[in-house]
Nucleic acid binder design. Structure first.
Lengths: 159, 159
DNA sequence: GTCAGTGCAAACTTTTTGCAACTAC
DNA sequence: GTAGTTGCAAAAAGTTTGCACTGAC
C-alpha cells in the first residue's frame, strides 16, 4: 500500500470512528492524524506539537492530547511508556515489532522476531482478553558499549 | 530461601555495590532497601514514601529517588512505566514474570510463561547486548469485561 | 442556533535540582 | 575534617482541567 493510500485509509477509519461516536470532524483532528502518519517511529506529544508548528498549523496542547486519546481509542495509534514520558506510534498497516532500549543513551530501536511474535500472540491468559502487547528489551547498544570500554580502560590506567 | 535470608543477602549485595562505587552506607538507604523487599508486587515512589512514613521512618522524596536510582544500578530492583508514572519492583531471587494490564481499570497482574521466557532470553540482537526485558500484554480483565457487557445491554435497551 | 471542540492559562502530578545542614568515613 | 548525603523547597517536565470563544453540524 502506498503512503497516499494509507493516508486515505486512516482518514476514512478516523471519520467512521468519529461519526460512530458522535464526535465532530474538525480540521485540527485530521491535520494531527496526517502528521502522525508522516512520522516514522516514535514521537511524544511535545514533538508532535513542534512538528505541527513547523508546518505552520497552530494547535493547542490540549487539542493534541484530546486527539491522541481519540486516535488511541480508534486503534490508529499505540502508546508506549519509555523514559518518563508517553511515546506514541502509528499502528495501521505497520508490522508488529519489538523495542530495544539502550539504558545508557536512551535510544530506542525496533526489531522483528517472528518466533517471539508467534508465541505471544498464541498465548491465552486466565480471566483476561488480550488486545495487544509491548515487548521492551533493555540493554546496551554497541556504541555505548564501546564508549564504556574506553572509559574503563582510562580509569584502570590512572590507578 | 527464607525472607530473612533474602533480606540479609540483598543488604550484602547493596553494601558491596555501595563500597565498590564509593557511596556511603547510610541508614536511609538500608531502610529503603528493607522496605522495598517487604513489598510484594509493584510500587511507585509516592507509595514507598507513604510506607516509610507509616513505619515512622522519615525520609525525603529526594532521598527515595536517589536510593531507587542506586538500587536500579545495583540490579536489586527493576523499573516499569505503567500509567504515567514509574513503578518499581524488587528483582533479587524473584521469578521472571510478565504483566497483564487492563486498559479499563488499569490494574496490573502477573503471569509466567516458560515458552515466552525461553524464546526471548535465547534471542540475539544485532549490535545490542540485552540485559533484561519487560513484556506488557494489554487487554481487558474479566471483571471489566462483565461490567462493559452490562453497560452495553442497558444502552441498547434505552434506544 | 446549539453544543462539542478549541485555545489558553492555570492547576496538578511526577521527577529533578540547588543549597544549607548533617554525618559516614 | 571533608566530601558524599540528606531534607526541604523550588523548579522543571509532562499531563489534565476550567472557561470563554469558536465553528461543525
Amino acid at each position: 500500500m502506498g503512503n497516499t493510500d494509507i493516508q486515505e485509509k486512516v482518514r476514512q477509519i478516523f471519520t467512521d470512528y468519529l461519526s460512530r461516536n458522535g464526535h465532530r470532524r474538525t480540521p485540527e483532528r485530521f491535520a494531527i492524524l496526517d502528521k502522525i502518519y508522516s512520522i516514522d517511529g516514535h514521537f511524544s506529544v511535545e514533538q508532535l506539537l513542534h512538528e505541527m508548528e513547523a508546518m505552520k498549523f497552530r494547535v493547542s496542547r490540549a487539542t493534541v492530547y484530546n486527539t491522541v486519546t481519540l486516535l488511541l481509542d480508534a486503534k490508529l495509534i499505540v502508546r508506549h511508556s519509555f523514559n518518563n514520558s508517553a511515546q506514541y506510534e502509528k499502528s495501521y498497516n505497520t508490522q508488529t515489532h519489538h523495542h530495544l532500549i539502550c539504558t545508557e543513551c536512551g535510544r530506542v530501536s525496533e526489531f522483528e522476531n517472528k518466533g517471539i511474535k508467534g508465541i505471544i500472540e498464541e498465548s491465552k491468559f486466565p480471566r483476561f482478553t488480550a488486545m495487544n502487547y509491548s515487548l521492551y528489551v533493555y540493554g546496551i547498544c554497541s556504541n555505548c558499549k564501546r564508549l564504556k570500554t574506553i572509559r574503563m580502560k582510562k580509569q584502570n590506567k590512572s590507578k
